[in-house]
């Protein structure tokens, strides 16, 4: 057997984390992307920069500040204590919050690019035909920006699966709760159990390649340049 129980638990946990995060990010990211695509407000610059920060910040910086924020005296810690949670560190939902920050640009930017490439014209025409805001969004924007949404979801999912440094710093390596695949691989490598590390690593490699392959081939077909997020 290539994977033992701990590996399967880690794989399941990783998929669960990535799914929850992707779902939440699409919900949070869409209005944000819409606003960024449409606004001429002076806040557009600062907000864009904030959204893009995880692209350039080392995970240790994000992990370190989250650890401080989660602590009972920290901003998020004080908030979570109101709900009876002493700290969000070492918990699944702590990882979810961390991943929301960490994968945000990978979801917001493709959606924003897709909305920008539609332009104002189709929406204005729809409006003159009497379509309301939500009507326009669901019948004009969503179909035309479909590729952007798919890219956003796939990248958000994949990037969360590939998350490591942040989770290592705030997770506490608890099986079934915070021990995701990347952390499990790290533990195997550090413990010199290279064979077990190989199995999980090779699966990760294959998974990531397939995901990126799908993203790039769908983009190629649509003829839209959606990922200009990277570098």
């Amino acid at each position: 057997m290539a994977f033992d129980d701990a590996d399967l638990t880690a794989i399941w946990l990783t998929l669960k984390l990535a799914s929850v995060v992707t779902f939440l990010l699409i919900i949070i990211g869409t209005p944000l992307a819409w606003w960024l695509a449409k606004t001429k407000h002076w806040l557009k610059g600062p907000v864009s920069a904030l959204v893009a920060l995880p692209l350039v910040l080392p995970p240790t910086v994000i992990g370190f500040y989250l650890l401080l924020a989660f602590s009972p005296d920290g901003i998020i810690g004080q908030l979570s204590q109101l709900f009876g949670v002493y700290t969000l560190a070492f918990s699944f939902w702590g990882l979810v919050i961390a991943s929301l920050f960490y994968s945000l640009p990978f979801v917001v930017q493709p959606i924003q690019n897709a909305i920008e490439s539609i332009g104002d014209r189709p929406l204005e025409i729809a409006a003159t035909l009497g379509a309301g805001f939500f009507d326009r969004f669901f019948t004009v924007v969503l179909p035309q920006a479909k590729a952007g949404f798919i890219t956003a979801a796939v990248l958000g999912f994949a990037h969360t699966v590939g998350e490591f440094g942040v989770i290592l710093m705030i997770g506490g390596n608890i099986p079934g709760e915070t021990q995701v695949v990347s952390v499990q691989i790290y533990e195997y490598v550090e413990a010199l159990e290279y064979q077990k590390a190989h199995w999980l690593s090779a699966s990760m490699l294959l998974f990531s390649f397939v995901v990126l392959f799908i993203v790039y081939s769908t983009q190629h077909k649509k003829g839209i340049r959606l990922i200009k997020t990277e570098h």
């Binding site: 650890l67 401080l68 989660f70 602590s71 009972p72 005296d73 810690g77 700290t87 560190a89 070492f90 290592l168 710093m169 705030i170 506490g172």
Partner: peptide, 12 residues
Amino acid sequence: SQAYQFVATGNA
């Protein structure tokens, strides 16, 4: 060091 971090920040 990481065990220390967890306690020093008050999370554990």
